[in-house]
Structures are given as structure tokens and as C-alpha cells.
């Protein structure tokens, strides 16, 4: 069974919506002086527990920057980012590593599996860095996570022995193993054929229905349409849209409001 890690103290009474991500007027500048590039401008965004949000934009739009910021792989130049109660800008490198370890499960376009390790040893990595010292516990949990994505029988295969879709499932198992508050997926179907891609998106929907919060970043409207809320990003500016993705969409940014117009409701209903 799939379950997102939901901190009890952050679950409001009577299923009240609880925000997981609070991005307030966040900007990111790369470089300094003449070569400075404003990759992200005044982005504000709230994602509640249990939401399934797609952030869509063409390449160069700043969506990767946003993904790195959301994933605590980089820190904002300005603004405020609170992830599950942690003010990210105030954290040092070691604390950021702990936040990435506990709060976030990454799914990448290129799967990013380590070729020399068997599937279960790829999946156990977050447990390893999370401080679980007992190898048999890590192994059991890794196999359990692989079972959740339907690959329990292939736990000892190396990545080269698995199809693209299977590799991405291993990556998803790895993302799930620490029961993170958030699954952050960067073009998760970008390297897959359409049927494998559909399977992965289906898996995401199942995970979301079981309560896992998902933020999916893509350039593909077909992929973005699977999410329950769609945000668009263009030229470093983030804008909200309808719950059902359309190509137009509203241009009003969330601007630090506690929830998107429709996403909040969906987030609540899925908890």
C-alpha cells in the first residue's frame, strides 16, 4: 500500500488543508554583475498535502530552476521557501542534505540509477544516507518499495538488465522509500516510450490517490494534463491556471495565497 509521509502535527483537524510548500516572492539569480541571469522572478506558490501539481513550461522557462529550488538542491537568492515547516534559506548544507533525504523523493528524466548497483541497492540509498545502519532492514524495506511499484521480483537486477519503464519504477521506489512529504518528478516520462510513460503516470495517480504529494515538472501538455492542478512557467515567471489544464490559463500568480483557486480543494479531497 502506498502512503505519503504525513507529519501528524501538520495535519489540520477535520482534514483541514495543510500547506507543504510555501514559496513566497522567490527569485533566483545565477552569476553576478553583467553576466547575472534572472532565472526565476518573484515566484509564489503554495502546495498542500496530497496535491498533484504539474509545473509546465518550455525549455529555458525557469522550470528546472524552480525544480532545483523546490528540491533544496539549490537555495533561492531572494524570497522565502518553507518546506514542511523548514525555512530552507536558513539551513546549512548538512541540514539541507537531511531535508532532501527525509522530505523529498526525486524522480529524474534520466532515472539516475547507479549502474554498478543492483535495483535494491539503488533503492536503499536514501535509507543509507538517512542513517539506517542495519543492512537487512534496508534490504527488506527496499524490496517492499520495489513491490509497491510492481518490481518486487526484479530486486537483484542491475539497471542495464531492466527496461526504461522498469528503471523509472526503480527510481520511483527509491523516491518513496523514506516516505517523503513530497515526490518531485522532473520530466519523468521524457526518456520513455508512450506506453511506459502512461504506466508511470498511472503509477503517480495511484500514489497520489493514496495520499502522496506530487509535483511534476514537464514541458509536455499531455503529461501535465494528468495532474490535478497545472501551473505554467514562462520567462522565469510562474502563473496559476485552472485545475484542468488548458493551454491558455489564468495569469494571476498565487502571490503567496495559502492555496491555488482549485488545487486547494483537490488537495483536501485527496487526503
Amino acid at each position: 500500500m502506498v502512503a505519503g509521509r504525513v507529519a501528524p502535527e501538520r495535519l489540520g483537524l477535520e482534514g483541514e488543508r495543510v500547506s507543504l510548500i510555501e514559496l513566497t516572492h522567490v527569485g533566483k539569480v545565477y552569476g553576478t554583475g553583467d553576466v547575472a541571469v534572472q532565472a526565476l522572478k518573484d515566484a509564489s506558490l503554495t502546495v498542500d498535502q496530497g496535491e498533484y501539481v504539474a509545473i509546465m513550461g518550455p525549455s529555458g522557462s525557469g522550470k528546472s530552476t524552480l525544480m532545483y529550488l523546490l528540491g533544496c538542491l539549490d537555495v533561492p537568492t531572494s524570497g522565502r521557501y518553507i518546506l514542511n515547516g523548514n525555512d530552507v534559506r536558513s539551513l546549512d548544507e548538512i541540514e539541507l542534505a537531511a531535508v532532501r533525504n527525509h522530505e523529498i523523493g526525486f524522480v529524474f528524466q534520466q532515472f539516475n540509477l547507479l549502474a554498478s548497483l543492483e535495483a535494491w541497492r539503488n533503492v536503499e540509498l536514501p535509507l543509507l544516507y538517512g542513517g539506517e545502519r542495519r543492512r537487512h532492514v534496508r534490504r527488506d524495506q527496499a524490496i517492499e518499495a520495489l513491490e509497491r511499484v510492481g518490481l518486487g521480483h526484479r530486486y537483484h537486477h542491475r539497471p542495464v538488465e531492466l527496461s526504461g519503464g522498469e528503471q523509472q519504477r526503480v527510481a520511483i521506489a527509491r523516491a518513496l522509500i523514506n516516505r517523503p512529504a513530497l515526490i518531485l518528478a522532473d520530466e519523468p516520462t521524457g526518456s520513455l516510450d508512450s506506453s511506459s510513460g502512461t504506466e508511470i503516470l498511472q503509477l503517480f495517480e495511484e500514489l497520489n490517490e493514496a495520499g502522496v504529494t506530487i509535483v511534476l515538472i514537464t514541458h509536455d501538455p499531455g503529461v501535465g494534463s494528468h495532474a490535478k492542478r497545472l501551473l505554467k512557467i514562462r520567462d522565469g515567471r510562474l502563473s496559476n491556471s485552472d485545475a484542468r489544464p488548458t493551454m491558455g490559463g489564468a495569469t494571476v500568480a498565487a502571490q503567496g495565497s495559502r492555496r491555488g483557486p482549485a488545487g486547494g480543494a483537490l488537495g483536501a479531497s485527496s487526503l
Binding site: 538542491l73 548538512i94 537531511a98 532532501r100 533525504n101 527525509h102 539516475n112 540509498l125 536514501p126 544516507y129
Partner: peptide
């Protein structure tokens, strides 16, 4: 370098 990036994304500290 990508492996190092990945390990860091998965929670590896600089010390690790």
C-alpha cells in the same frame, strides 16, 4: 559528477 549530484539529492552530506 552526476553520481555525486544524485547522492547529494538522495541526502548524502558533504562528509559522506
Amino acid at each position: 559528477i552526476r553520481e555525486i549530484g544524485l547522492r547529494k539529492a538522495l541526502g548524502a552530506t558533504p562528509g559522506a
